[in-house]
Design a protein around this nucleic acid. Structure first.
Lengths: 342, 342
DNA sequence: GAAGAGTCTGAAACCGTTTGCAGGGCGATG
DNA sequence: CATCGCCCTGCAAACGGTTTCAGACTCTTC
């Protein structure tokens, strides 16, 4: 059915080997035959079977991508960056979504390992030991996580957290809450660390409000702790959580930003669409995706790989409309509420 | 490096053929040898090379998925449904994003065709003739589009539009606007047709407000036409457009829903998160994804395919807080505005 | 005890490509 | 004119599986 290298060879009056060479190593074959072969191949619409090629070269031309949840708007942006860069280098991308199930990750790596040249693990939730095991199955690059010597592209969380704290401290906030994400999330730990350091440096108090699902609903749940904590500003694990919190605050009649300031992280599209627009820490998502491919191709020794890429990407605070100067301490709007609820 | 069928054969003291049979046709091999082979295979961690298998069976176990824009929250939901169902049937999914470029679609089909057993084209923007051409390269299933005899899963747009119109008509709206999506979008035409029929049946006037990009920004741009049109309710091409429109209306101090009602389509997650929550037509996105896989596997004659699946999926209007009774005709808030702008 | 049927297994061919190796043709050189 | 080297090309093996075909063996049956 499909046109094979033999069909081309026969039509061009040469052997299959010559066709193969004409197409992949053009300079070692005679110009006139090369021309003829290419013309015939083009005319017949010949496209090499990548599986067959992969069988002998050991390269599939495929890359695997594993991530927790495509429905979280943070990830599609990364996927887009990855795809862009991968297609440029003529790789195809397998995408697999684990539905936030950490136990599914390793299984996916195993089943994917044979079919791909390398795997990108995006915000993996698995344990470090599993991560090491995963890396033994096939070349692996991490995004949003670091582990030992496995190549990784991460964000400069320390600097990002400093920017957020400095912004809030500059507005007069002295008691700042942090709504943490899942315990299994490396970013949670990393951001917490950055926040503690930055809070200490700015001489503000950091209140850790507990762990919540990295979703809108998780953010809504976190409102209780926020009120109890008696803080004037809250930093959310990500924008989705921030939006949930915003919504719950509104339901309780608490105004943002005059009574409480809220800061998100990620800068998902949505964060600019709501009202009031969310102040958030921009994460270069597409850039991270592209960089991870660069890193992987580099690891594979592919000549199409870019130059040694930056592995720690800068972030940038986008001040929009959910942050404002801290309310005067005497009114203490959330403190009153807290007392009544306890 | 990797463990092959020959390694297993040697370790089990049988020939490769027997190993192959033991694993794929268990009942034609002696139970004791089968046991032994399976144990050895398991112990060695043997996993058949799918590329090699595909070479001889002609099946890759891969499915291609082409869609316009992963950043549009409508699509990730579909992708999730597709992946779920595909993984159950032991297929892997290649995802490719065209960045809303209709000319890129056919090229992607061509380059993917050889590596997959079938392709799912999600909301394709290409012309019918190109669609027919695409279907000649490999088995194709359409989502959100119909074209000739190509298998497709679509939404019951006619009924959905009827629900929307009936809802608005019931609230007393007599002049209703529609913000259309891209001209190349099949859904736009389909919805327009459904709206015209429903509007005629309900004896309300339908005002077509022109074509806009299917994005938040597109929605913002559409606000001009909305005001000029002198309508009391607007139906947007999708939720993203509706949200953009909502935002622009707010910027101009026009209250929703008391002055203008707005209805979206898709029910993306986000639509429930904003304030006021968007009234929208729910589209069963994950279900559509799963159905498209059923359809494709059926087409491929795969026994894992579900029963002959429904191809036209029902929609459901979710009444939230952006629709309300039409303002009394005497005030005509947008009419005044219109006059001043013209 | 021989023939026949039936069950299980192994040898070999094949899928579509790449690549090491050898050989043919040709020009240059002595 | 013989020899050497070089450029180009074809043959054949290999990649890791599946599948056809034939043969070995066991078990009936007369």
């Amino acid at each position: 059915m499909a046109v094979t290298i033999r069909d081309v060879a026969k039509a061009a009056g040469v052997s299959p080997s010559t066709v193969s060479r004409a197409l992949s190593l053009p300079d070692i074959v005679d110009p006139t035959t090369r021309e003829r072969v290419m013309k015939v191949a083009d005319h017949l619409g010949y496209r090499p079977n990548r599986a067959a090629r992969g069988l002998i070269t050991g390269r599939t031309g495929n890359i695997g991508l594993i991530l927790p949840d495509l429905a979280n708007p943070f990830f599609p942006s990364i996927v887009k960056g990855i795809q862009q860069q991968a297609h440029i280098a003529d790789y195809q991308v397998f995408v697999a979504d684990t539905d936030e199930d950490p136990t599914a990750e390793l299984g996916l790596v195993r089943s994917l390992a044979k079919q791909v040249d390398g795997i990108i693990l995006c915000s993996p939730r698995m344990k470090p030991s599993e991560l090491r095991e995963a890396a033994t199955y096939c070349p692996v690059v991490l995004v949003n996580r670091k582990a030992g010597s496995i190549p990784a592209v991460a964000m400069d969380n320390a600097d990002g957290m400093r920017q957020v704290i400095d912004h809030l401290a500059g507005l007069g906030h002295r008691r700042i809450g942090f709504v943490a994400g899942p315990r299994s999330s490396w970013s949670t730990k990393e951001r917490l660390r950055g926040l503690r350091a930055a809070a200490a440096a700015a001489a503000v108090e950091l209140v850790e409000l507990g762990h919540f699902a990295p979703t809108f609903d998780g953010g809504m749940e976190s409102v209780e702790g926020t009120l109890i904590g008696g803080v004037t500003a809250v930093i959310a694990y990500n924008d989705l959580v921030a939006l949930g919190l915003l919504s719950a605050l509104r339901d309780r009649g608490i105004d943002v930003p005059s009574q409480v300031s809220v800061v998100g992280i990620d800068n998902i599209q949505l964060s600019a669409m709501v009202h009031p627009a969310l102040t958030t820490l921009d994460i270069p998502k597409e850039k991270a995706g592209r960089t991870s491919i660069d890193l992987l191709l580099h690891l594979l020794g592919d000549p199409a790989a870019g130059t040694g890429p930056a592995r720690e990407l800068p972030t940038e605070l986008l001040v929009r409309h959910t942050t404002a100067p801290a309310p005067t301490t005497t009114s203490e709007p959330s403190g009153r509420r807290r007392a009544s609820r306890l």
